[in-house]
Each structure stands twice: as C-alpha cells, then as structure tokens.
Amino acid sequence: MSDLPLIQADRAVEPPAATTNRGRGRRLRLLSGTDRVVITLMVLIPLLLVTALVWLPALATVVLSGTDWDGIGPLADIDFVGGRNYGDVLTNYPPFVPAVQHNLLWLAVLFLVATPFGMFLAVLLDKELRGSRFYQTALYLPVVLSLALIGFVWQLIYSRDQGLLNAVLGTDVDWYGDPGVNIWAVMLASGWRHVGYIMLLYLAGLKGVDPSLREAAAVDGASEAKSFFRVIFPVLRPINIIVLVVTVIESLRAFDLVWVVNKGRNGLELLSALVTQNVVGEASRIGFGSALATIMLVVSLVFITIYLVTVMRGEDR
C-alpha cells in the first residue's frame, strides 16, 4: 500500500514535536528580541482585526437586539427594551417561522441532492472523458456569472407570461409567485450554482489522489464503485469536510437568488433576507433586525460547534 509510508511519515513528525515541548523554555530563550517583537505583532494584528471586524460587530448586534434603535439620533438616546424584539420575532412576525423552515429545507436539499450530485459530476469528469474541459467550464459557469445576470436568466425562464418554461411545457404555472412552487424553483437555480462549486472543489481533490491507490484497488479486484467508496472517499476526508462546511455555510447564508427574485417575500422567506429587509435600507428597524441576526448567529454557532468538535476529535485520533 503506497499510502502507508505517507501516514508513517506523518506520524514520524509528531514525536519530535512532542520532545521539543519539553525543551520549550530553552527554545524561547533562543528567540532574539526582534523575533519576539515580530511574533507579538503577528499575534496581535490578526487578533485586533478579528476582534474589531468579527467579535465587536457580533457583540454590538447582540446588544442592539435588546434596543429599539431606528438608526437615527445619538447612541445615548437608545432605549433598552429587554427581550421585546425576540418576543416580537417569535410571536408577532409572520415571516419568521417560514424563514426558519425554508433555511432547514435549503440545507436538506443542498446536502442531500446538490452536493452529492456535484461530487458525482466531479467523479465523472475525473475520468478524462472527451471534452471534459468543456463540461467543466459549462458546469462551473453559473458560479462565475454575476448575480444580476443570473436573476435575469432565471426570470426569462420562470416568467409566468413570457417565460421559456411555461412556453415549452404549455403550462401556466406561476413559478415565482406561487409560494408552494417558488421555493423549489429558486432552489433549483441555487442548486445549479452549488453543483458547479462543489464539482470544482471535489475535482481538485480527486486530481490530487495518488493514482497508485486506484491501481492497487483495481489489482485487488475492487469494483469501480467499491474503490471509490472504500478507498478514494476516505482518503479525501479533508476535502469532504470542506465540502460539508461549504454546504452548511451556503445554506445558512443563502440570500442572493432569493433577494434577486422578490427580496425574500411570499414563500421565499430566509433568515438572511429578513435581517437585510429590516436592517439595511430605509427601513432601519435596527433593534428588531439585530434580534433576527442574533438568532441566525446562534443557529450558525450550533453548526460551527458540531463542525469544530468533529474536526478536533478527528485530529485527536
């Protein structure tokens, strides 16, 4: 097995690292003054950036979610209203429940349909078929296209009166207007982009797999499917995790297509669109929007925690 030495080489690196731990005190003393300054700066600058750009805004959102600020007037005038915004979100805001359901549906469809399909296409394209570069480009194109163009393309397809789909099928389904249909229509458009993205990520991973692995599997008499699921797929663990994370992130921040279609209303409610509706623009319902954003943050944290726990457990093993 050709990957055995590789793993051994990996492990071989660790014991020395463990021994240097014991000698840490001596190593620190070896650092010159300049080194220490450089290290301090290298730690401090990213720390400040992360604090200023990520943690402080996140904290400010949480704080603002307890206020009724409308974006006008000095900060001193802000009134705290306690949990009223959260109460309103849960009981007095009809779009909220559908938004949560749609986000979950989005995650399920991307995870169960779009991502596996993108991986499947990557495996196919990895076979060096004739014209694979063309397919690759065609499948990746949606990821590159600008949002305005994508909105326009799908509007041409889905328009009830003048659209391609109704003209070809001879139906008059209201693809964008019927709240029972439009989420699936948009999800198809979103999947169309997502498949290309996953395909490219996975293809890059597949290209990096040592070909002797496949040869060995073939020599051992493993079928095509078996060699993928038993050999290639486990080897691609880092890529699999990236794909998983990308899928979760994409479904949580799903926003652009929905916004392009109808600003996240009428059957297309998503948490991100609701936050934008309330905070950005003229509405300036900042306290209320922050409460929505905080809820979204908590939901994201659940997934991030699961991911981190999985990754760390994986590293311990």
């Binding site: 328009s159 693809w175 709240p179």
Partner: peptide, 15 residues
C-alpha cells in the same frame, strides 16, 4: 389578472 405575485409590473403593463 391571476397569479399576480409572480409578475412584474412591466409584464402586466405589456399585457
């Protein structure tokens, strides 16, 4: 006009 929620005002005007 039925199914108004999927239609832009431009499309309605064109009808």
């Amino acid at each position: 006009q039925p199914d108004a929620l999927g239609r832009t005002w431009q499309e309605a005007a064109q009808s």
